[in-house]
Design a protein around this nucleic acid. Sequence first.
DNA 1: AATTGTAGGATTGTTGACAATCCTACAAAA
DNA 2: TTTTGTAGGATTGTCAACAATCCTACAATT
Lengths: 235, 235
Amino acid sequence: MPPAIKSQQRVSRMNLSGQIAEQLREDVLTGALLPNAQLNEKELALSFGVSRGPLREAMQRLIQEGLLRSEPHRGVFVAEMSEADLTDIYFVRAAIETAAAKQLVTSRNTETISSQLSRISEKMDKAVHAKRWKDGSELDFEFHRSLVDAAGSKRLSKTYMTVQAETRLSLHRLMGGYRRSEELAEEHFRFADILKNGDLTETLDELDRHFGDPVAIMRRARHSDSSEYRKSSIE
Amino acid sequence: MPPAIKSQQRVSRMNLSGQIAEQLREDVLTGALLPNAQLNEKELALSFGVSRGPLREAMQRLIQEGLLRSEPHRGVFVAEMSEADLTDIYFVRAAIETAAAKQLVTSRNTETISSQLSRISEKMDKAVHAKRWKDGSELDFEFHRSLVDAAGSKRLSKTYMTVQAETRLSLHRLMGGYRRSEELAEEHFRFADILKNGDLTETLDELDRHFGDPVAIMRRARHSDSSEYRKSSIE
DNA sequence: AATTGTAGGATTGTTGACAATCCTACAAAA
DNA sequence: TTTTGTAGGATTGTCAACAATCCTACAATT
């Protein structure tokens, strides 16, 4: 008599609106839906093969999340970040990453995460040297998200996910696209090393340096086509 | 010929789902809807005098916001905070308030806000001496929200609003209700004074002290009916 | 007694139709 | 020429009905 099957995995319940919300979120984040584009309910419902009801419910979720913007009776649009938005995003990202780093250092819990961050930095190094700028950018996002996730705060991670999404929305219009610099990985390696040392002041100082200044980033993006922040033709 | 009327006030567009979301949010925050209570769509739609569609849309907003919890095919419930949640909430609140205070101090922008905080502390003092504990608690919330708002970051304020709402949801079950201590206002006066001085290290240290430890708060709430954290009969 | 199967009722999820709103184009009036 | 009014079409907002799912109670089976 074989042992009874005992699954450790609970069945996940998800209705149409949940599935649609996930897909829409992905479409926004990957650029399939561009900033300021209108989401036409009739067309979208048709293309998802559902009625407008669950589509509207899904959109309400993303509106509350900040990825979409609703104008009652006019429609729903992909959110578009202004320069003031990006400045705010950088401020909040800094607050979050600072809190996460501080938590990791003060609880002497930097070993595992700094190894993980170094591994991501290695992959980033390969990507930038192969001029795969999009991949480099994705790994950059992953690096920072990993740092925040390592602090173990559900809410901090959720908030960070939102502001990271908003950073992605800002990338091409305000920040000049993917950063095209082979120094990208070095900076990240350096931070991982400093974090490993467990010195709070150094860690926080390096984090400050790492962030850069959103105003300067935007100015460079506006003024130079040869800027290191440019949408890659490889993409 | 009288001058043409030129209103500075744009007309606000709000549909049913927006209005319902606001009302539901208020009901959750004021305790009209208790943690873990189920929201029955049919009844609620009837009592709001609308169909279930906009009600569902409103609920999606609050679900994404974290005030409600959805179990597909079973219903929507008012979120209930666990002890782990409250610990996390305190962590995020600390991160946010720390970032706000730091911003205010480093930009030498503490004059106006410290005056405002002192005024709130005065009102708090009156409330606690009149044993209006609920009022004291509300003013406590207002104090902290004002501090964060003064930093001028839309996203920081929005995130804070959410974790503050979650703190309210935790108040009676995990924290023993309103804090009943006449020291409440003193602590807040003290913080306002230190903020006014503009010394970053002192400000951040005082903030740390001010927060207290969520674990200790919960332990006290569990172990003592004469605790200073108890639901007021005056309420 | 414990387990499985079934039916009914309550509630949630989805759909399609109708109502409401907005925008655009065009005509009429000043 | 400019301003105002109107109609039509497109899109969004809401509604009521039907479908799907879950839960509970009870009966049948082991």
